[in-house]
Amino acid sequence: MGFWTRILVNTIIFIAVAGFFSQSGAFYVASIWMAFAASFVLAILNALVKPILFLFSLPITILTLGLFSVVLNAVMLQLTSYFVGSNNFHFSSFGMSILVAVIVSVCNAIISSHFVSRRR
């Protein structure tokens, strides 16, 4: 899946998850454009910051059989919230960012596998 396709997919996922949790206020996205900006910032952070964090956390990631990568994804979402602005894109708790990280990861895995199978 290409760069812009992944950003578009993440934008749609952010809007859908924010809509799902809109009554509780656990995850908030101000607008479609803020979801797009958050997707773009997340892609940049995943390219620049995540490899460094992954390298530092490699021992605990091995110890937890890779489950710590979910926490790293949640940290990346929290950093995205910080850079985009917590008034526009925020989580009520770190647990909520873990849940959104799991949802985004599962959706991206399903969509990526669909794109790969379509190319064959």
Rank of each mutant, 00 (worst) to 15 (best):
S92Y: 05
L58I: 10
A26D: 14
F115G: 01
V100C: 03
F68H: 05
N46L: 06
V104T: 09
Q78G: 11
L99C: 08
A101K: 05
T80K: 04
L42F: 10
G25P: 15
N73Q: 03
M76Y: 01
L79A: 11
A74G: 02
N10T: 12
L77R: 05
A37T: 12
G66D: 10
F36M: 08
C107G: 07
S113A: 15
I62M: 14
S93Y: 01
S97P: 09
M34Q: 11
A26F: 12
I32A: 13
M76Q: 06
M1N: 03
V71I: 15
N108V: 08
V70H: 02
S39P: 00
A26R: 06
I52L: 12
T5W: 03
V100P: 02
L53D: 01
N88L: 07
G95K: 08
I12C: 12
S92L: 05
L48M: 11
I110N: 03
S105V: 04
L77A: 04
S93I: 00
S97C: 08
L72S: 09
I52N: 09
I110T: 08
I111H: 01
I103N: 05
V102M: 11
A38S: 08
T5I: 13
F83P: 06
I103G: 05
Y82L: 14
G95T: 02
A37R: 03
V100Y: 00
I110V: 14
V75L: 12
I44R: 06
A16R: 04
I103H: 06
L48F: 13
S93V: 01
S22L: 04
S31V: 06
I52T: 08
S22M: 07
F68E: 09
L63M: 14
L48P: 03
F83W: 15
L45P: 00
I103Q: 06
V104Q: 04
V84T: 08
A35L: 04
V116G: 08
L99I: 09
G2N: 14
V49Q: 06
S86M: 12
I52D: 03
L42E: 01
